[in-house]
C-alpha cells in the first residue's frame, strides 16, 4: 500500500526532519517501494520465535559506581553552535 504525502509529512514530523515538497514526492514513491519489499517478511512463520535485539549473551552490564572525572567542560562546549556562559544556548522551548 503506497504511502500518502500526508503520511510522509507526519513521519518527517515525528523524526523532526524538514522536507521540501520535492523530497516529499520522491520519498513517497521510494519509501513505498521499500515498505512493499518488507512485506515478504509476513510470509515467515515466527510463531513462538523470540526476538533478537543483539547477538551477545549479555544483559545489563554494570560497572563499579566509582566517581571519576569526565571530559573537561571547555572541551565539550568548544563544539557548541551557540553558547552562553557554561550553557548551550537554544531558542525558548516554552511559548
Amino acid at each position: 500500500m503506497p504511502l500518502t504525502p500526508e503520511e510522509v509529512r507526519h513521519n518527517a514530523r515525528l523524526a523532526r526532519v524538514g522536507l521540501s515538497d520535492d523530497e516529499v514526492a520522491r520519498f513517497q514513491s521510494q519509501l513505498s517501494l521499500i515498505l512493499d519489499y518488507f512485506q515478504r517478511l509476513q510470509e515467515v512463520d515466527t510463531e513462538n520465535v523470540p526476538p533478537t535485539a543483539h547477538t551477545l549473551a549479555m544483559h545489563n552490564v554494570m560497572r563499579d559506581d566509582e566517581p571519576h572525572p569526565s571530559i573537561d567542560k571547555e572541551e565539550v562546549l568548544a563544539n557548541a553552535p551557540q553558547r552562553e556562559g557554561d550553557h548551550f544556548r537554544v531558542r525558548a522551548i516554552l511559548e
Binding site: 523524526a15 524538514g18 523530497e23 515498505l35
Partner: peptide, 23 residues
C-alpha cells in the same frame, strides 16, 4: 530550527533511513 538543521544537514539517504526507521 531543529527541523531545518536536519533538513539542511542530512543528505538524501540519511533522511530516507531516518524516515524508514521512524515508520
Amino acid at each position: 530550527n531543529m527541523e531545518k538543521t536536519r533538513e539542511f544537514g542530512f543528505g538524501d539517504e540519511v533522511k530516507r533511513r531516518i524516515m524508514l526507521g521512524t515508520y
